[in-house]
Design a protein around this nucleic acid. Structure first.
Length: 338
DNA sequence: CATCGATGTTGAG
DNA sequence: TCAACCTCGATGG
């Protein structure tokens, strides 16, 4: 399921290609016919992401809230942006102990994602005719240069919502949440969410997180997954951030030193930037070129501990431990994170 | 080709 | 605590 970085990337597609456009909304599958009718014909005014939730604003004070949940995905077609490297990963680099391999602009291309090769052939960020699925992974549905037969294509399968402009189409499947809200209702949802590094003031947000976590007896491994504490972290980033901090997941929040909490928050900020700019959950820094290539090719070589049960810790060689907590798998090194 | 499992959340019990 | 939601890539035969 998409963690925070994917939702920001999807939102960026809407901001670039749908905001300012009149939108025809429909529910080919039928399960969202009423909501689609409310939005149909309105102009999209803004697209915002907070954590794993996306909010699309339409004229008349209507908002579409979408949460992709476990299986949800957006399929874009028509004029969409397929660059992997646009913007801002470099801004916050250098805060932690990374050595900049990722930051250097060597954008991942690899299996299942849009790639740098296309960027070198086309101007970066230029809209292209293409099909792109955006969820946990982003896959280009047609080969570069290939023309779509018709626009828009007939919706295939269970499309909950189709949003169509004169140049672009977005199909939503399998979301956990998809609903039309009034501004007060949007505010109520936002009020329950913890800070998002790409939304909130960095200093304010950091202090807020320190305060929240400092009060709780709950294990830090659970707090990082709690969207009311911090927005956007999921199971992969949770495990990886804790390893990078060498923190034991069971440590009660209130026993984690404030400085460590600040470091966690800053590391999340850093990893989110990489995720948004590359489209991948790259959580290992300082890889040499060979390691980096391998990491892009194989999911199993991309993380420190996630999905590595029984495999040797990349730092100390101890077998990685997996345990189930709150119905989610938690991975950590029992020695490095003692 | 059948089965498994997943990057998530909600609500019932 | 656990099933339900609902989709599809990975895996194994």
């Amino acid at each position: 399921m998409p963690e925070g970085h994917s939702v920001h990337r999807i939102t960026r597609q809407f901001a670039r290609h749908f905001v300012g456009e009149q939108v025809a909304a429909s529910s080919p599958q039928g399960r969202f016919a009423g909501g689609a009718a409310e939005i149909d014909g309105r102009t999209m005014l803004s697209a915002k992401a907070v954590g794993k939730q996306m909010f699309l604003e339409f004229t008349g004070g209507l908002w579409l809230r979408v949460h992709l949940g476990m299986y949800g995905a957006w399929d874009f077609a028509g004029d969409i942006t397929t660059d992997a490297t646009t913007s801002s990963a470099n801004g916050r680099m250098g805060q932690t102990n990374q050595r900049g391999t990722v930051a250097s602009g060597a954008a991942p291309s690899g299996a299942g994602t849009e790639g740098e090769n296309e960027d070198s052939l086309h101007s970066i960020g230029a809209p292209r005719r293409a099909r792109l699925r955006m969820a946990e992974a982003e896959t280009l549905r047609s080969s570069p240069g290939e023309q779509d037969d018709t626009f828009p294509a007939e919706p295939i399968g269970a499309v909950r919502v189709r949003l169509l402009t004169s140049h672009s189409v977005a199909d939503l499947r399998g979301p956990t949440a998809c609903e039309v809200l009034y501004p007060e209702q949007v505010a109520a949802v936002l009020a329950k969410l913890g800070p998002d590094p790409l939304v909130d003031d960095p200093v304010e947000a950091e202090d807020r997180v320190v305060k929240t976590i400092g009060k709780k007896p709950t294990p830090i491994g659970l707090l990082l997954m709690d969207q009311s504490v911090i927005s956007g972290i999921g199971n992969v980033y949770r495990a990886e951030i804790l390893f990078r901090a060498r923190l034991n997941p069971h440590t009660p929040g209130k026993l984690v030193p404030a400085e460590s909490v600040r470091a966690l928050w800053r590391d999340w900020t850093y990893l989110l930037d990489i995720g948004v700019s590359t489209g991948q959950m790259m959580t290992m820094d300082g890889l040499d070129e060979e390691q980096f290539t391998r990491a892009l090719a194989s999911r199993d070589d991309r993380h420190w501990v996630y999905h590595r049960t029984g495999k040797p810790c990349r730092v100390c060689g101890t077998p990685i431990v997996m345990e189930v907590a709150a119905a989610r798998k938690l991975y950590y090194c029992p020695v490095c994170q003692a």
